[in-house]
């Protein structure tokens, strides 16, 4: 896998990430639609974290930091969009926006912790 990243003949026949991506998406959807804060945060963390993980695993990303940063940026933008949209509807979107920001903050904390504490050879592949 490492020597010939372009060859599809050699990938592994197993990956732990897909099932968690597929779990994170509905959990975050339910959390956001029904305004259930813990489900929204947890689902978004699971979804975004596992996307970063699978990108790393399949060699679309060299390190974990790029994808995680992108995810954080997308989450912040999405949360901001929710805050803006809140002004245009009678339904309160503020708590949903906070849930999205919360998951962005937790991911950032994870990113910082990873940068500080994880030894180099494990952090990058």
């Amino acid at each position: 896998m490492d020597e010939n990243p372009g060859l599809s003949d050699q990938y592994r026949k197993a990956s732990p990430w897909p099932i968690f991506i597929a779990l994170g998406l509905p959990v975050s959807e339910i959390g956001l639609v029904f305004d259930i804060f813990p489900l929204a945060v947890g689902g978004l963390l699971l979804f975004c974290g596992c996307i970063a993980g699978i990108l790393l695993e399949s060699n679309y990303a060299k390190t974990l930091w790029g994808p995680v940063l992108t995810m954080i940026a997308i989450l912040v933008a999405f949360g901001a969009a929710l805050l803006v949209a809140d002004g245009y509807t009678e339904i309160g979107l503020v708590t949903r926006a906070y849930a999205v920001f919360a998951s962005a903050i937790i991911m950032s904390a994870g990113l910082v912790a990873g940068k500080l504490f994880v030894p180099k050879q494990q952090a990058s592949v």
Partner: peptide, 13 residues
Amino acid sequence: PRINAIAFWLLPP
């Protein structure tokens, strides 16, 4: 192959 697995695992939920 991984997208294939994601597509399947979306179905049970």
